[in-house]
Design a protein around this nucleic acid. Structure first.
Length: 681
DNA sequence: GAGCACTGC
């Protein structure tokens, strides 16, 4: 076993930027190198060296004199929270305009905002505020520094496409390449040409800094042919800051690993036997793997006796009940070692303190969208080198750590992809297309993305939006339907359902259903309680299907006075129901604003058995009713579904029985009746 | 009789 591991030979990362294209270049030393201890950094171009304490000067110098766009390449330096403060100090919120800083996650927005407010000694919600969905902690005319999710900034653009409220926009964590971030970057590049005075600061991992800079650098041809005033005055400048994380020693498997769950377990035991105190974080792919690993570890600890005891093994994934999730934050008792076995949730979303050892399986579950079949799959896929470095970095937060990679160095260097495929290239584009259309971008296929989605995905999205009556024959938003759908922050199919319900006089009910469909699941599930929860579900089951069942649950919850005990008793997820209430309130506000009629249909709500196999009208695919549905084994002749889950079969989740003539009424432009009385697409 | 990487509006 001791021969199993081989230390990595890769040289320290960083210092990869160059200034050939004329951008200013700053390079800062690492906090732990000797030069950094004295705080030196260098401006290569000017052959000058700046103390790290002059970081502020550097940023302001760039902003004031040269760059409209600054790319900050950094690796967990913690410096990005300082940039907004410098900008505010220097009065960069000009002419009553604000400085905006985006993050991809709500929690990060709240955390960064309160940290900055604290550092500046001001009350959160005054000069420094934040906005996330359902929560606006800002004060008009007082707030200067505003933190927000990139999704919220995109929504703001629908009222103010040029973002005239802001003089500086900083996009943090751009390397994560979330859909919202990519759309935002594409739009910001466009805005820059109309607003040359707008300053952009894009913060990304060092390895992505160069490609971010390339994206914002205007193409040579265009630069020559266009008036100077139209575009950014100078090339993007790159400013690079090396992380202050501690050194993490990387170890690779000597041979390819056959079973990464088993390998993760043995590696953890080896760490426990041979390494000094410090918690272990193991990255696996999903609930199944994690539960299996927890079981194996617990078993082996019990059978191998004394020297292996003292391990506290905890699973971590988002589907875990809230109380179990919180266990991973508790400190291990003296003399005990905590082992957290986690999904990707611990890679970016949650930060665990006290981790010294990381075990990286090299895999994660990723979503892939197939535009031909219109199906999203969740598959176990190899992670990227960027991800592997991020995972390893989790071991160096409190002191020097070690990372054990369950793959060979040869694989890491020669076969692992450098960066992951951006989410936008792995997703259904329906929501993106409608958002861009709402912002007045007609030439969707020619949009300048940081990474272009496939044309098949774009065409499929246009087709779906046409079938919903959201786009017309010229691919323009229909009025009012298309514009109304764009205002509603839901899957466009669900938004269209709300608009139709307004005309059919049942919008109160449909808004409830839409809110339930927008949360993960309102049912509590888990090992050992299937029988009870199934029985509880039957108490709400409606003959029409899952959607009407949701109405029954909502009604019961409402009548109980929104009680958590009622939820507990009925195996309903209380946190999910709270979110349903929030979404429902937001939908009511939006419905009112866009002129929909809110009306209840009161109680005016209205099978053939076969082998359980269905064929989709569009594409003739074999699909089955998911066993979690109240219509499982009822098998009505015609059903519509909200989503497909693909495992060994394609399962329809959230199913409703219908009369096929509904389809003709709802979408006469899309469905035709064949002579033999069969529906045709 | 099955299953859910993770976000976000």
């Amino acid at each position: 076993m001791s021969q199993f591991w081989k230390p990595g030979t890769e040289r320290p990362q960083g210092r990869v930027v160059d200034d050939e294209e004329g951008g200013l270049l700053f390079l800062f030393g690492s906090h732990h190198s000797s030069s950094a201890r004295h705080g030196y950094a260098s401006i290569e171009k000017q052959r000058q060296r700046l103390p790290v304490s002059k970081y502020r000067t550097a940023i302001l110098y760039l902003v004031e004199t040269h760059a409209t766009t600054i790319i900050v390449g950094e690796t967990g330096s913690g410096k990005t929270t300082q940039i907004p403060q410098y900008l505010k100090e220097a009065g960069w919120a000009t002419g009553g305009r604000l400085i905006a800083c985006t993050q991809p996650r709500r929690l990060a927005v709240q955390a960064v905002a309160s940290r900055v407010a604290e550092e500046m000694g001001v009350k959160l919600g005054e000069e420094v505020g934040y906005t996330i969905r359902f929560e606006d902690v800002t004060k008009p005319d007082v707030t200067v520094l505003k933190f927000l999710t990139d999704g919220v900034l995109l929504r703001e653009m629908m009222d103010d496409p040029l973002l005239t409220k802001y003089s500086v926009i900083m996009v943090d964590e751009a390397h994560e390449r979330s859909i919202s971030t990519d759309i935002l970057l594409g739009l910001l590049k466009k805005i820059q040409r109309r607003r040359p005075e707008l300053r952009l600061i894009i913060s990304s991992a060092t390895i992505e800094a160069k490609s971010m800079s390339d994206f914002f650098r205007m193409r040579k041809k265009r630069r020559e042919t266009e008036n100077k005033d139209d575009g950014p005055q100078v090339e993007p400048a790159i400013l690079s800051v090396e992380g202050r994380g501690f050194n993490v020693q990387i170890n690779y498997a000597e041979e390819p690993v056959q079973d990464y769950v088993q390998a993760a377990v043995s590696t953890t035991l080896l760490i426990h036997e041979r390494e000094p105190a410090g918690d272990v974080l193991v990255f696996l792919t999903g609930q199944d793997d994690i539960d299996a690993a927890v079981q194996l570890l617990t078993d082996q600890v019990q059978t191998t006796g004394k020297h292996s005891s003292g391990l506290i093994v905890l699973p971590l994934y988002s589907g875990l009940p809230r109380a179990d999730q919180e266990l991973v934050f508790s400190q291990a008792p003296r003399g005990k070692r905590k082992v957290v076995i986690s999904t990707n949730i611990a890679e970016t979303s949650l930060t665990l303190e006290g981790i010294v050892y990381v075990v990286d399986s090299g895999f994660s579950k990723q979503r892939f969208y197939n535009p031909i079949s219109d199906i999203e799959n969740l598959v176990v896929a190899p992670i990227s080198r960027a991800s592997a470095r991020q995972r390893a970095g989790r071991a160096g937060r409190v002191r020097p750590g070690k990372c054990y990679r369950l793959y060979t160095e040869e694989y890491f260097l020669n076969h692992m992809p450098n960066a992951g495929i951006p989410e936008i290239q792995r997703s259904n584009m329906v929501s993106c297309v409608i958002q861009l259309k709402a912002l007045g971008i007609d030439n969707i296929l020619g949009f300048d993305w940081p990474a272009s989605p496939s044309s098949e995905a774009m065409i499929r999205a246009l087709e779906v939006l046409y079938s919903l009556g959201i786009l017309d024959d010229d691919a323009k938003l229909t009025s009012p339907t298309g514009f109304q759908v764009a205002e509603i922050p839901l899957d466009p199919m669900v938004s269209k359902m709300i608009i139709a319900s307004s005309q059919l006089g049942c919008s109160e009910e449909i808004i409830t259903i839409a809110a339930v469909l927008s949360v993960q699941s309102i049912w509590i599930s888990g090992r050992g309680i299937q029988k009870e929860s199934d029985e509880a579900k039957l108490r709400f089951a409606a003959a029409e299907g899952d959607h009407v069942t949701f109405l029954n649950v909502y009604k019961g919850f409402h009548q109980s006075g929104k009680s958590s005990q009622w939820c507990h008793k009925n195996y309903v997820n209380y946190h999910a129901m709270r979110k349903v209430l929030e979404v429902r309130e937001q939908l009511k506000r939006i419905a009112k604003r866009i002129g929909l009629v809110l009306k209840s249909c009161e109680s005016d709500m209205q099978a053939y058995s076969h082998d359980g196999m269905y064929k989709t009208l569009r594409g003739s695919q074999e699909v089955y009713i998911h066993p979690s549905s109240v219509l499982f084994r009822v098998n009505p002749k015609w059903v519509i579904y909200h989503s497909l889950v693909s495992t060994d079969r394609q399962y329809m989740r959230n199913v409703l029985t219908i009369d096929p003539s509904c389809l003709l009424d709802a979408a006469p432009h899309f469905y035709k009746l064949q002579q033999s009385n069969h529906l045709l697409f």
